[in-house]
Amino acid sequence: MEIFVAQLLNGLSLGSIYVLLVLGFNLMLVVAKIIQFAYPHLVVLSMYVCWGMLKYTNNMFLVVLASIVSCVIVNVAIEPIFRALSKKHGLDINVSFVVSISIALLITDVMSHALNYGFPIAFPTDWVGKSVLNFGLITFSVGQAYALIGGIAAVALFFYLLYRTRQGRVFRALSENSVLASIIGIPVVKTRILSYAIAGLLGGVTAVLFARLLGSASPSLGDFVAMKVVAVSILAGLGNLKGGLVCGLLLGIAESLAMGYLPGSWSNAIAFMMILIIMLIKPEGLFGIQI
């Protein structure tokens, strides 16, 4: 029982990172109609930015700011590539997938050649911190608490933006019908760029939380996580934001439970096996495709 609770907590904090990544990924998918496979890579790149900043300052505000700014800038800088590939109303989503894989490879290569000589980076031990909770086998680190609480806050803000604000209505209108959106006066290109910026902002926050949860990062982390983000998005139903929320958490919990109960590191195999089986039964995803 103790193992179960411990792994459940682990799973929730890991899951909240997946949820954040899937939300940013899905936002660009529904608004800009692209598969941005390189999004998790950008988040990992921002983890490197955090790490670099920490060498100069311990000011948490500055570190978070640097992470957010770098993620927004790089994500928005990528937008013209996708726009150039798109026709007036819509881009072939498969093309965007291939292009974003190239961008992902590029980012991974930069990290493995140019940053820290390609070695994994380690964050200061107080970033992950000691346990804040100790009951027998159950431990919950400061970093995990940050990931979970920060994750919940960011997700709540994200859904508030999308469902309660003017800009959110504009995003949803554009995601449902871009031609109709332009007919009623919504500037399609500008709104799409804004979705990249919002995803970048979310990504910058995610980078800090992820760093605090893991305590380290490596050039291959982007690929590793991107696979799961795409898988979760497909599993939930491409572009389904609420579905992504549920499935992101589920993946985190399933992985952690597998790690707690099964020998060795079977967590990946479990996760992808689960996805394979579900996709065979429900090809449109658990919650239905929404693009």
């Binding site: 209505r169 949803r172 449902e176 031609v179 109709l180 332009s182 007919i183 009623i184 006066g185 399609v188």
Partner: peptide, 28 residues
């Protein structure tokens, strides 16, 4: 001129097929 600017300049098109944003509420 781009469609959103035409709309912004004051031409309101009621498109064919009673098109609405079907996943959003009437108010939205």
């Amino acid at each position: 001129t781009s469609t959103d600017k035409v709309a912004g300049s004051g031409i309101g098109l009621i498109p064919e097929g009673h098109l609405v944003f079907s996943t959003m509420t009437v108010l939205e």
